[in-house]
Design a protein around this nucleic acid. Structure first.
Length: 633
RNA sequence: GCGCCCGUAGCUCAACAGGAUAGAGCAUUGGAUUUCUAAUCCAAAUGUUGGGGGUUCGAGUCCCUCCGGGCGUGCCA
């Protein structure tokens, strides 16, 4: 549709300038009802407002010039001044390739970095982490589909207190050896429980011991350091397997331990001091700290970057990491291959693979939940104060709300909830949450039941293959259908549904189309793809059917704008919903008009072509949403 | 205290940069299969968009105010 919009702009914008002396960038709307037109222009309102003229009159003045265009069949002026366009169907259908393309002519940025997932490698992943991973993965896919060069990073905080806490637990509560840990096949599940145990004892003595363990890990003291490494790597591998079930991968896994080892901070510290972004505070409450002045809430405040004991705060590390991301730090990681898909950062140049490099992005999306907005903003401010305004501008916090449990779900899981609140926060410390793998297992189990009902004769492997696709598709859609600032109140009944507005609904629609094409080719010996070359005239159809098919084709042609809006407004849910609506339209057509049994060849063809257009678009949508496509359901 | 977000049908959520008669799913009731897969479709019913005021051709959307809820505001990460 972008193709047609551009054509309209080229004609109309100069006309408006000549006629009204206004530089009006034309905005397009979708008519609320399909019978009102295929596309709406609302520029007459804007010009009318400025020139104090009747919008209807202005809109009328556009009619002649537009009606001369080959692309347009007719124009309607509606309501107070809407300009409703009806495209020429013949023109439209014979230019389908151009009208339906998603890729832009060229990428907007040299390189875009998307950071997501970032699960602490100290316990099993839970549903909250899945929302992050699915959103981040989908954002990456959206950007790629539009033609951007995207690098996906998953930051591993392998030296933080969370890892230290479980190291403490392993050493001082369960007293396990390194070998014991290595033998475990579900180290993430084991640590999930251990982490809760660690936080059960919260007296000063154990807190002090945990701090010591943390300190030793940071200093590289044995055996704590080895334990930390075994644990973080072991859990990381499990996390990668978990998200792999949803089709999620990364290009590179930068580790915090390497940021420390390679002294990224030292460079960042120098730059920050040199440009006077931070200063040493020698009096007051923050005596002995390096602080950054920030102006917020209408007052000057100090944000501590280096603590009085010389330790760097989280924000400090994040600033240095972001300087690296934008290629503004004179330091780099070394990398080795972790498995066939992922590179992981290392500190030792001798083990490093050559000719691979990451970072140096022009634009950065950080997929991090809304609670971290404040810190993300500090990092942005630091970049700004350093004079890297372009980078600050291109640092985007892709912020979303958390996943919570409904009180009922929490109680069903066996957690005792005392509070009056309706929703329960997911908490690793308390062990309250649904483990990602458990949820995926359950989804697959239910999908399997459904398939067995329908196809009792299918071999086991086939059933497993399909149930995996359905389970993952259901989960991904569930995580995507909500707008970012909606808290997902997780509910088992809702998440495990395969009917209505769900991933399987989209998958099922796709399966129906595919099998229809197969039957068509068997029956008529004609390749579906070829049939699009010779399109009969829509006017042979009865009014109702013609409108329905045409409306659906126009709707399907909006995918490019929907993708743009999803990216620009940072709302993947928009695209998910659009996919759902498209399938609704398909299912209506499918139920109302038969293809195979239609005797009139032209009618049959028009129906087939409409469905084929939907099919092409739905396939792109499913790829972007990361929803797999079973060939049969 | 200050800052950000949310309040829409019984429930869970939509509504493009302020656009036309606020839409889906679930649940409820009734219906559709000699016909391309019923994980589908059709129909019915459900609304003072938390309350009040303002801005304008037009407000669920913007501004003010009140009520109710969530989060943030660490020498934690």
């Amino acid at each position: 549709m972008r193709y047609l919009k551009n054509k309209l702009k080229i004609v109309l914008e100069p006309f408006i300038f000549d006629e009204y002396g206004e530089k009006n960038e034309i905005r397009f709307l979708n008519p609320p009802k399909p019978e009102m037109g295929d596309l709406t222009i609302s520029s007459a309102f804007e010009i009318g407002k400025k020139l104090r003229k009747n919008p209807r009159e202005i809109a009328s003045s556009f009619v002649n010039i537009l009606e001369e265009m080959d692309e347009i069949d007719r124009i309607d002026i509606a309501g107070p001044g809407y300009l409703n366009i009806f495209f020429n169907k013949r023109y439209f259908l014979s230019n389908i390739e151009k009208i339906f393309t998603l890729k832009r002519d060229k990428a907007e940025y040299k390189k875009i970095i998307v950071e997501h997932t970032n699960i602490n490698p100290n316990k099993a992943a839970h549903i909250g982490h899945l929302r992050n991973a699915v959103l981040g993965d989908t954002l990456s896919r959206m950007l790629k589909e539009r033609g951007e060069n995207v690098e996906i990073q998953n930051y591993i905080d392998d030296t933080g207190v969370q890892v230290a806490d479980v190291v403490y637990g392993v050493l001082h509560i369960d007293k396990l050896s390194i070998d014991d840990l290595k033998k475990m096949d579900r180290i993430d599940y084991y640590l999930w429980d251990l982490y809760v145990k660690v936080h059960l004892k919260d007296d000063e003595e154990t807190k002090k011991m945990r701090r010591e363990v943390h300190h030793k890990i940071e200093q590289g003291i044995l055996p704590e350091k080895d334990y930390a490494e075994i644990i973080s790597l072991g859990v990381l591998k499990r996390h990668l397997e978990t998200v792999k079930r949803l089709g999620i991968d990364y290009d590179v896994l930068p580790r915090e331990s390497d940021i420390i080892n390679l002294k990224f901070w030292e460079n960042a510290f120098d730059i920050l001091k040199e440009k006077s972004v931070i200063r040493y505070q020698d009096e007051g409450v923050n005596k002995g700290c390096w602080v950054m002045d920030v102006f917020e809430d209408g007052e000057d405040r100090e944000k501590i970057i280096v603590k009085s004991n010389g330790a760097i705060t989280y924000v400090g590390k994040d600033i240095s990491y972001h300087l690296w991301k934008f290629g503004l730090l004179n330091k780099d990681f070394y990398y080795k291959k972790m498995d066939e898909k992922h590179y992981i950062s290392i500190s030792d140049p001798d083990q490093a693979v050559n000719d691979i490099s990451f970072g140096n992005g022009e634009r950065v999306y950080n997929v991090i939940d809304q609670r971290q907005s404040y810190l993300q903003n500090i990092v942005k401010k630091a970049l700004e104060k350093l004079g890297y305004e372009k980078a600050a501008e291109n640092l985007v916090h892709f912020s979303y709300e958390v996943v919570a449990l409904s009180k009922k779900s929490a109680e069903d899981l066996g957690f005792k909830i005392d509070s009056e609140k309706k929703i329960v926060e997911v908490s690793g410390r308390k062990g309250i949450g649904v483990k990602a793998d458990d949820l995926i297992d359950e989804l697959e189990r239910r999908a399997k039941e459904e398939i067995e009902k329908r196809h009792p004769d299918f071999p086991e492997e086939k059933i497993n293959e399909i149930s995996k696709k359905i389970g993952s598709g259901a989960l991904r859609y569930y995580m995507l259908k909500y707008t970012l600032n909606a808290i997902i109140v997780f509910d088992f009944d809702e998440a495990l549904k395969f009917e209505g507005e769900t991933g399987p609904y989209l998958q099922y629609s796709n399966v129906r189309m595919k099998s229809l094409f197969k039957k068509y080719e068997e029956r008529f010996g004609e390749n579906v793809e070829n049939s699009i070359d010779n399109i009969p005239d829509f006017s042979i159809l009865p009014e109702e059917e013609k409108n329905k098919l045409w409306e659906t084709i126009v709707f399907a042609s909006r995918l490019d704008s929907e993708l743009e809006l999803s990216i620009n407004n940072l709302e993947p849910s928009r695209l998910a919903k659009y996919g759902f609506y498209l399938c609704q339209k398909f299912n209506y057509i499918y139920n109302s008009f038969s293809v195979i049994n239609e005797e009139d060849e032209e009618k049959r063809k028009l129906r087939l072509i409409t469905i084929y257009i939907i099919y092409k678009q739905l396939n792109k949508i499913l790829d972007i949403l990361g929803i797999e496509k079973p060939d049969i359901m």
